[in-house]
Simulated scan of single mutants.
Amino acid sequence: MSSPSHRFAASRIAPAQRVEDYVGVQIDPERRRGRGAGINPSGRFEPARQLFDDGWGSADDLPPFRTEVQEEQPRRIITTNQSPDISFDRSINPYRGCEHGCAYCFARPTHAYMGLSPGVDFETRLFAKPNAAQLLERELAKPGYQPRTMAIGTNTDPYQPIEKRYRIMREILEVLEAAGHPVGIVTKSALVLRDIDILSRMAERNLCKVALSVTTLDRKLARAMEPRAATPERRLSTLRLLSEAGIPTTVMVAPIIPALNESEIERILDSAAAAGVREAGYVLLRLPLEVRDVFKDFLERAYPDRAKHVLSVIRSMRGGKDYDATWGKRMRGDGPYAWQIGRRFEIAARRLGLNRERRQLATDLFRPPVAEGGQLSLF
């Protein structure tokens, strides 16, 4: 079987390394219709390739980018971290890549490790892990495993469109429910409502919470920036239905982008509180590695009148750089502009009664699954 990089690279157009190299050679708008990235630069770990005109105009005849899914069989499914500025130490990613196509997605650079582009490839060349539930059951059954909240959706969305077919996330939830293991979910998709039966049962035992990211209430901006994610109205409706089912909900105003969606902080929190949300959080726009070029290209295409201003304000909150990965600063930024964003968020949240309590999920209900061929407990 050929490697993913060989399999996908032959059909890709990866003409350049920087946004500046794309002047006059942007991917045709009709070909990338419905996709968030307008470029498909070479990944860090593959050779740069240049667009070549063979005189036949063949580039114009290429079909639209279709979503392709390759199944992979990882050996482990739980990823651990020791980052001091995030609230979880373990997570699961059922998929690599994300069809939602958010132009700002900080997970885009992970596709470079697969020999693919963090641009359009990230949205169209996806990887599914169909054995995730079996791996999870095996890892939870290991002697000495200590339960803490399992985070899902912190990298790519577990409820992106291909989940309708693969149902990997639902199988994971079935394992977690049976084991009495707590889980925290982050998504932009209304598909999470499909699993409201499992989630409501887990919520009765204080085993789950669900966060939806609401980036904007402006349908035009959402369509341009998050082309295949649920509409803002659907996300708020999803929060309401989850809350009515007794499932603890959180709204993530994320990412906050200065001079683009920053003015909506208070309105998003107002709408989420009216939908029954009791907790809220925010994250400032992050532009690590290749995300910078994809996002800059998006701004220049969709909002050319304010692109330079947006980037200038971002740099004012990142020590003059496009991004600062320092722990404690990467999520919130630094400087006066970042400070006032934080205070606005806090004041609005306090006014609405949000974050008065931070729900801690139960860990004392955990019962390890019985490993295949293992012996049942007497008690």
Rank of each mutant, 00 (worst) to 15 (best):
F106Y: 15
F106N: 06
A107S: 08
T110L: 12
T110M: 11
Y113G: 14
M114Q: 15
M114S: 15
G115C: 13
G115K: 13
G115D: 13
D121A: 01
E123A: 05
T124Y: 05
R125A: 09
L126I: 09
L126S: 08
F127N: 01
K129M: 01
N131P: 07
N131A: 15
A132D: 08
L135Y: 14
L136Y: 04
L136V: 02
L140V: 05
L140T: 05
K142P: 04
K142I: 09
P143V: 12
G144P: 06
Y145D: 04
Q146R: 15
Q146E: 14
Q146W: 13
P147I: 03
P147W: 06
R148A: 12
R148Q: 11
T149R: 12
T149A: 12
G153E: 05
G153K: 07
T154M: 15
D157T: 03
P158T: 00
P161A: 04
P161F: 03
I162N: 04
E163G: 15
R165L: 10
R165E: 11
R165Y: 10
R165A: 11
Y166G: 00
R167V: 00
M169P: 04
E171P: 06
L173V: 08
L173I: 08
L176K: 11
E177L: 13
E177W: 12
E177T: 07
A179M: 00
G180K: 03
G184D: 12
G184N: 12
G184K: 11
T187C: 01
K188W: 04
A190G: 11
A190S: 13
L191N: 08
V192N: 01
